[in-house]
């Protein structure tokens, strides 16, 4: 027993030094002022109109992105799960391939594509079609989020769908359900754990991102991630940054708890 416990040592060391301590440091900064005295002022920074607006936009854009990802990913995951194995691995590869490229690079590529005189508008201009002016708008940010996070929605749903015994679906058909009823009453309920994992894996990074909004929003649209980034880097105010981070964490935990509440005891998926 003792030697087995020793094996856990490195992981314990890792999580203490790189997860627990940093978290405590953030909590410390969040609750103290420059002088080191206890204060709630950093937390209440979230109530300033600019910050509330940033949080609101962040929640809205992440919600829309997550929804769009879900709508795009589910049919794709279904198609993939019904294919033969060798066909699937190729299609899955196509989807995963972009993930092997740097995230920043991919987002910058979209910047180039969407620019006023970018690739897409050049092609549209050549075809005498009206130009697409979505760069530096929330639409571009949603596009960037969906593009970057879509695989994180596809894979967990795909993984759940391939594990469903085809005979369970046959049984539903056998008992009189048509294909739509089979999907609504059997396939979808059985895939909820995957959907919840997918939502978590898209919603959380979308809510906290600042790179996508920086590059595709042109600095005009501030998300809560940008506000936090600015307080750390531009204003060098670690106390406010930590306070806002903590509030954001609470928002994430709350929204995940809300999602988990609708996941009837499937257990061990998102949380």
């Amino acid at each position: 027993m003792k030697s087995k416990r020793l094996l856990a040592g490195p992981y314990l060391f890792w999580s203490v030094s790189f997860v627990i301590i940093p978290l405590l440091v953030i909590v410390y900064y969040a609750f103290t002022s420059d002088g080191g005295t206890f204060t709630l002022a950093n937390l209440s920074q979230i109530t300033t109109p600019e910050n509330l607006k940033a949080l609101g936009i962040s929640l809205l854009l992440s919600f829309i992105s997550t929804l769009v990802c879900l709508i795009l990913a589910y049919p794709l995951a279904m198609i993939l799960s019904q294919k033969q194995v060798n066909q699937t691995s190729f299609i899955v590869l196509i989807f995963i391939l972009p993930m092997w490229m740097n995230f920043l690079l991919r987002t910058m590529a979209w910047q180039t594509l969407l620019e006023k005189n970018g690739v897409i508008n050049s092609i549209l201009g050549f075809l005498h079609l009206p130009a697409l002016e979505i760069i530096n708008t929330p639409y571009a940010i949603i596009l960037g989020m969906v593009y970057n996070f879509l695989p994180f929605m596809v894979l967990p749903i795909y993984n759940v769908l391939i594990k469903i015994d085809p005979n369970v679906l046959n049984a539903a058909r056998d008992l009189g359900a048509n294909p739509v009823q089979t999907f609504l009453k059997v396939t979808f309920p059985l895939s909820i754990p995957g959907v919840i994992s997918g939502i978590t894996m898209v919603f959380v990074p979308a809510l906290t991102t600042f790179v996508i909004s920086d590059l595709l929003g042109g600095g005009k649209i501030l998300l809560i991630g940008n506000v936090i980034e600015q307080s750390f880097k531009q204003n060098s105010n670690w106390h406010v940054g930590s306070g806002l981070s903590l509030v954001l964490m609470i928002f994430i935990i709350a929204s995940m708890a809300l999602v988990a509440k609708y996941d009837k005891g499937e257990g061990g998926t998102a949380f």
């Binding site: 005979n167 046959n170 049984a171």
Partner: peptide, 17 residues
């Protein structure tokens, strides 16, 4: 779903949810 017969599958195929 239009056939008047029902099947009992090899590994039960119950709806686990």
């Amino acid at each position: 779903n239009k056939r008047q017969l029902n099947t009992v599958f090899q590994k039960y195929a119950l709806f686990t949810h």
